[in-house]
């Protein structure tokens, strides 16, 4: 077990390192740089040169990368060219916003999707057909569309704020939650549907096993079989996808953030990429890959605990 954990930790560290390095080098190699994009193509060469020197863009890639790496090891990720402030602060704020959104969505999706999956996997009849049909429809509506539709509904009815994270004026938790409802729902719906389908499949497989029949014959109540014994055995496939779901949530939250103007990592990275803000791109990539690494790590460990065979 200890060896397995160490192996997964190394993988996680490698992930963060490779992704942020690749982001930095790719952005640096891209045509056009920050100096040219802000000053314009017809800027005087000496002004351009001066700006490049200020941002360190006149150095060779290898040198700039090496320098960044040394500083990054000391948790100094450089300064954003667009904003003129350290990258670390910007990224931390945006990552926190994305984390709030994604974590809420994940919890909501689990609380809704899992029980529905248990029900639809262990019963038959019109309720189950209904759940199944709804989840197929929801599964076919990506977060981009869900958030657009919810936004239009919110604007029509005025029940929820249209976009953004906070109202003007003093911020409060209630206000944040008020703004959170719409994007979190948009992000959670497809994931909840996926959980429902996965859990339903796993449940119906387990429910067909002889030991369930044996328990039933011994007089164990049906609800206890379903919600305790069968559920425990059927949890594995859902836990196995949790690691992948973190990636899906990040992908989905990119679309949701764009539609509802939620000031998260996606928006920050998009703007940084467009402005060729090299250090900020690398910082965003590092934060995103940290989420991923954390998600896969947790899901791998949970899987290893539920099913000891997994890490052999």
């Amino acid at each position: 077990m200890a060896r397995y954990v160490v192996r997964r930790l190394i993988f996680a560290a490698l992930l963060v390192f490779l992704v942020s390095s690749a982001a930095l080098v790719l952005t640096r190699l891209a045509p056009g740089d920050y100096a040219m994009l802000t000053l314009g193509v017809d800027a005087r060469p000496e002004v351009l040169e001066q700006a490049r020197a200020r941002y360190g863009l006149n150095r060779p890639i290898a040198e700039q990368y090496g320098d960044w790496l040394v500083h990054a090891l000391r948790f100094d990720f450089g300064e954003s060219m667009q904003h003129g402030v350290p990258v670390a602060g910007l990224v931390r704020a945006a990552a926190a916003n994305t984390a709030i959104l994604a974590a809420t969505a994940l919890v909501a999706a689990t609380l809704v999707g899992l029980p529905l999956g248990v029900i639809s996997g262990s019963r038959r009849g019109w309720t189950v057909q209904g759940i199944r049909a709804v989840s197929l429809v929801v599964l076919s509506t990506p977060s981009l569309l869900t958030s657009l539709i919810l936004l239009v509904i919110a604007a029509r009815t005025g029940w929820f704020p249209v976009g953004n994270m906070r109202s003007a004026g003093p911020s409060s938790t209630g206000d944040l939650l008020w703004h959170l409802v719409l994007p979190a729902t948009a992000l959670a719906l497809p994931v909840a549907a996926m959980f429902e389908r996965l859990q339903a499949q796993a449940m119906s497989d387990v429910v067909g096993k002889p030991y369930v029949l044996a328990a039933l014959a011994r007089g164990v109540p049906r609800s206890r079989i379903v919600w305790r014994d069968a559920l425990k055995a059927a949890l594995r496939p859902t836990i196995a996808v949790y690691g992948l779901v973190v990636g899906a949530l990040l992908s989905g939250s990119f679309a949701v953030e764009a539609v509802t103007s939620w000031p998260g990592l996606g928006q920050l990275m998009l703007n940084a990429l467009r402005a060729r803000d090299v250090y900020l791109v690398a910082g965003c990539a590092a934060a995103g890959s940290l989420f991923l690494a954390f998600g896969t790590l947790v899901s791998d460990l949970a899987l290893a605990i539920v099913d000891p065979r997994a890490h052999e």
Partner: peptide
């Protein structure tokens, strides 16, 4: 496989001529 695909696509697209 672990990476969120839309970010990979986004990064690849954004670093090519706009």
């Amino acid at each position: 496989l672990v990476l969120p695909a839309i970010y990979v696509v986004l990064a690849l697209r954004a670093v090519l001529p706009l």
